[in-house]
Design a binder for these strands. Sequence first.
DNA 1: TTGAAGATGTTATAGGATAACATTCGCAAC
DNA 2: GTTGCGAATGTTATCCTATAACATCTTCAA
Lengths: 126, 126
Amino acid sequence: MQGDVLGLLRRESGALSAYALLAKLRESNPRLAPQTVYRALQALTERRLVHRLESLNAYFACRHGHHSGASILSVCDGCGAVEECVAPDVLAALSNVADRTGFAPMRHVVEMRGVCADCGGAAKHP
Amino acid sequence: MQGDVLGLLRRESGALSAYALLAKLRESNPRLAPQTVYRALQALTERRLVHRLESLNAYFACRHGHHSGASILSVCDGCGAVEECVAPDVLAALSNVADRTGFAPMRHVVEMRGVCADCGGAAKHP
DNA sequence: TTGAAGATGTTATAGGATAACATTCGCAAC
DNA sequence: GTTGCGAATGTTATCCTATAACATCTTCAA
């Protein structure tokens, strides 16, 4: 099941909600229950093969192999594409914020919503 | 209604979910419907008097008066307290990331989950 | 073979959010 | 006054997201 879910997510350029996954999986297994999908997502998330997009309640396959820290996500509200990148300076800046206030961060959520280059984000010269 | 919701949120040190708000508001108005709460939350969010915590599906009152840009949120998983702060360097670093990829960000979601100083985040000397 | 661990199935329910349409309230123009 | 408009609210229903609780099955090793 984890394999099925991961396969579906890898075929997407964007993110899928748990229920979108469920609908696709039900094409071949109509009796599939939400639990099963959520359990697979949880396992995949723990293994860092899948990340959750908090601002979208959706999930997408990590394309960065093994990365230890948090990543920065850019989500295009036009085409739905999700870009993931590592940005040590962002994380360093966040560490500074945490240090200033004595906060001990365990998990970072850094997402940008906007428009990607393909959809017109960058200045385009037609 | 917006006033009621804002009042409740301001009395909290942390965030409240829409349905937590609904439950409290129903103490004085048992027939209140979710819609009403969500509508108030939407209006307050647009006026930037309330922010939404994406990683928690919850809402909290802004304590920073008028601030234009995005803010960094620290959420203590111990006591639930939410700290909001501005961090131009974080936003600058994010801008760099966006520039590198031609992404045009419209909205930033930057949240840290962890443990606040009061709950043991900072090194404590007992 | 038995039993422990892990994955799945099943049923039910909790929690979060919005659609669509009706109603009411305040206020300004006539 | 009352007419008419817009904003806020009420109402009903439904959808989406997620988990609890318990049963079953599989696999593999002791």
